[in-house]
């Protein structure tokens, strides 16, 4: 039996990524926007951390470090989610979806291309902020060690799961669901224990908090920053929950994509 020829699949994925990369090359405001918010956030929270350290001494220094770590890692989730959702919205804004969906591009290849763009967008946004935190505030995120890669992977997967949900809602409700691409993840931030441990939250909220993969990453981050230990239990929980979240989001997308083909939404997707 001959192995399947995967080259056409990778070319189709690259084709859609090339479309977005060409767009960014020709649009400096889009390039600027990628790094603008992460850097702005880093400046605000960096000065806050410096203020805390100056007023409170060592406890303030520790609080500042967890604050900056939280800000940077939260940006990984946020930029991954927005990178995917906004790349999909770009197709709607340019009225190009009709051409894309009548090409041989499979829905999973579309998702793969959006994930590829999400990774590129996230790196272009977050890496300058990480370097800035290092240069301005002497906060080196890389001191977390290799576990940082596992944190990044989990946060990105969570971002993609939420983005798939947003894309599904756009397929179902048209561009009327567009504001979700910017706002939906902020709704999960209070429960993700980004800046504080889960123990701070009211008891009845904690189950919801523990159902989010991000919560386990941020608990793990604090373990690594404060005690220099890797909390493998939290990491395992993050991977397990991400599996459930991404599977649920993929199921939702498949269902909504089919529903859009039944209702005709793919032809008229817009406002």
């Amino acid at each position: 039996m001959r192995p399947p020829n995967l080259k056409p699949m990778f070319r189709r994925i690259w084709g859609l990524m090339y479309r977005h990369l060409a767009l960014y090359r020709r649009s400096w405001p889009r390039m600027l926007e990628l790094a603008y918010w992460p850097i702005l956030q880093m400046c605000i929270w960096g000065f806050t951390a410096r203020f805390l350290a100056a007023r409170l001494g060592n406890p303030g220094l520790i609080a500042g470090a967890t604050l900056l770590g939280g800000v940077l890692l939260w940006e990984v989730t946020l930029r991954s989610q927005m990178g995917m959702s906004i790349s999909f919205l770009e197709e709607i804004w340019s009225r190009n979806l009709g051409h894309v969906f009548v090409s041989p591009l499979r829905p999973f290849e579309l998702i793969a291309a959006l994930i590829g763009m999400s990774i590129i967008r996230m790196l272009l946004g977050v890496v300058p902020a990480i370097l800035l935190a290092w240069g301005l505030y002497a906060f080196n995120l890389f001191t977390l060690g290799p576990v940082l890669i596992l944190f990044f992977i989990n946060l990105m997967i969570m971002g993609w799961a939420v983005a798939l949900g947003v894309v599904s809602l756009i397929l179902r409700h048209g561009a009327g669901a567009e504001p979700l691409a910017w706002g939906v993840l902020f709704g999960l931030a209070p429960f993700s224990a980004v800046f504080y441990p889960v123990s701070v939250l009211p008891a009845f909220v904690r189950p919801l908090s523990y159902a989010l993969p991000t919560t386990h990453v941020f608990e793990g981050m604090r373990g690594a920053l404060l005690h220099g230990e890797v909390l493998w239990g939290h990491l395992a929980a993050a991977f397990g929950l991400n599996l459930i979240w991404i599977a649920g989001a993929a199921w939702l997308f498949t269902r909504q994509f089919h529903a859009a083909r039944v209702s005709g939404a793919l032809i008229n997707i817009g406002e």
Partner: peptide
């Protein structure tokens, strides 16, 4: 009634679809 991405050049648009159609 279906447009091509307006910021991309004609050549870039053609390349995109060249890749999509292998």
């Amino acid at each position: 009634y279906v447009a091509l991405p307006s910021r991309l050049t004609v050549r870039e648009n053609m390349r995109v679809y060249g890749h999509l159609y292998d």
